[in-house]
Amino acid sequence: MSDIALPAARRAPPLPRFRMPRGLLWQALLLAAVLGLGWWFWGNVQANMAKRGLELGFGFLDRAAGIPIGEAVVEYTPASSYARALWVGFLNTLRVAVVGCVIATILGIALGVMRLSPNPLLRGLVGGYVEIVRNTPLVLQLVFWHAVILGLPPVRQALEVLPGVFLSQRGMKIPVLVASPAMWALLAALAAGALGWWLLLRRERARQAATGQRRPTILPGLAMLLGLPALSVLALGAPQVEWPELTGFNFQGGVTLSPEFVALLTGLVVYTAAFVAEIVRAGIQSVHRGQWEAAFALGLPRGRIMRLVILPQALRVIIPPMTSQFLNLTKNSSLAIVIGYPDLVSVANTAINQTGQAIEVISIFMAVYLAMSLLTSLAMNLYNRSVQIRER
């Protein structure tokens, strides 16, 4: 009987081995190191504060601050709480940041367009301004503008730079609308007109994208922007304007902007506008020359070419760095402490010196600046998404 080879018994396949990805392992180790460092820091803080008889907590915010603040948007007295004092400092910072971003944007766009002017004198002047301002420390510029404001004539010889706007050693006096139903109706009508113009622009852009045709929007938009306030004035009357008048040794009426606020706003606007001008110039030059030549070949005037052809394409390059400049202006406002403007950081430093609650106060204004930066980035990113050119 011949030997018959029997088939070898099949072996069971080996069980798969679990292997952690190397990148995930390093991230887990890094997270553990960060948590360990945070735990050590927290324990060290508690031990050092216990040695000095201090306790962590935000209960001090309800105590009377006793901080004199010379400029406040809302009602404030030294008997107010620390929470109220920090709120006043935040509103002062927010006022400078919002007004500064708006003025710096307008001025920077104008300077950026002039930077590309065919006139060599204008182009050279703007270029010199941009180079000097960008290469000079902002702190020195703030000190310079503060010295300029304090060197102005006294109140009785105040300079009238515009009708009803006076500059002196004590700052700037400007007219103000008197709060009344007519004023609120006028502001609401202006907002409604601006909203209607924006909706009209959106509709016509959608029509142009779908059919290639677009109706004029300037005259209907101006009709809404000016017609609705005119109807409000006809219905409720014109709001009263309180004009500043020199009586004796000081002005009566109007609103006073302190020398510190004027110097800080001027310094931030002049400094940021130089960067905005370069951003606008680079954005315009990023559009290919052929776009200009094609638009000229169609017979479009230079102004309409810039508005309808060049700027919509340049915005893709302009918006992202503009976001950074808005954030920089907001954070640079913390240098107000150099010239004595009571912003959030200045009030917070005084609160730290009086209470010793450094960690709590620093965490408050860090959270405030973080929230302002994130909200600014969110708004600019949404706007950037809306102006992106969508290919068909």
Results as ranks from 00 to 15, higher is better:
Leu264Ala: 02
Arg316Thr: 14
Leu228Pro: 08
Thr266Pro: 04
Gly212Asn: 12
Gly227Arg: 00
Ala294Tyr: 03
Glu293Phe: 06
Leu228Cys: 07
Phe249Met: 13
Pro216Asn: 09
Leu219Asp: 07
Gln313Arg: 11
Thr217Gln: 14
Ile284Trp: 03
Ala230Ser: 12
Val309Lys: 07
Leu222Phe: 10
Ala230Thr: 15
Leu257Phe: 10
Leu308Asp: 15
Val309Phe: 06
Leu219Met: 13
Ser333Gly: 11
Asn328Lys: 07
Leu231Asp: 08
Ala230Asp: 06
Ala263Thr: 14
Phe296Val: 10
Gly221Arg: 04
Ile284Arg: 00
Val233Asp: 06
Leu300Gln: 10
Glu278Gln: 10
Glu204Gln: 15
Leu300Pro: 08
Val317Trp: 13
Glu204Pro: 08
Asn332Lys: 02
Arg203Ala: 15
Pro312Tyr: 06
Val270Gln: 04
Ser324Asp: 13
Ile305Cys: 07
Glu278Asn: 00
Arg203Trp: 15
Val262Asn: 02
Glu204Trp: 10
Gln240Leu: 13
Gly290Ser: 14
Leu234Glu: 12
Ser258Leu: 00
Lys331Tyr: 05
Leu327Phe: 04
Pro301Ser: 09
Thr266Leu: 11
Leu228Arg: 04
Leu222Cys: 05
Glu242Val: 01
Gly254Cys: 03
Pro244Gln: 04
Gly267His: 08
Gln208Phe: 15
Ala295Tyr: 04
Ser333Thr: 15
Ile318Cys: 03
Val233Pro: 03
Leu329Phe: 01
Arg205Thr: 14
Phe275Thr: 06
Thr266Val: 10
Tyr271His: 15
Arg205Trp: 13
Gln285Met: 13
Leu315Met: 15
His288Gly: 12
Ala209Leu: 13
Ile305Gln: 10
Gly237Thr: 01
Leu311Thr: 12
Phe296Gly: 06
Thr256Glu: 12
Leu315Val: 03
Val241Lys: 08
Gly283Gln: 07
Ala210Asp: 14
Gly283Val: 02
Ala273Val: 05
Ser258Met: 06
Pro321Ser: 02
Arg289Asn: 12
Phe249Asp: 11
Pro244Ser: 09
Leu246Asp: 00
Gly237Arg: 04
Glu293Gly: 05
Gly212Phe: 07
Ser333Met: 03
Leu311Lys: 02
Gly227Glu: 03
Phe275Ile: 00
Gln240Ile: 12
Val255Glu: 15
Gln240His: 13
Leu226Arg: 05
Ala297Gly: 09
Ala282Ile: 00
Gly212Ser: 08
Ala209Gln: 15
Val262Glu: 04
Val287Met: 04
Leu298Lys: 14
Pro216Val: 01
Ala295Lys: 09
Leu264Thr: 07
Glu245Ile: 10
Arg304Gly: 03
Glu260Ile: 07
Val269His: 09
Ala230His: 08
Ala238His: 05
Pro259Ala: 00
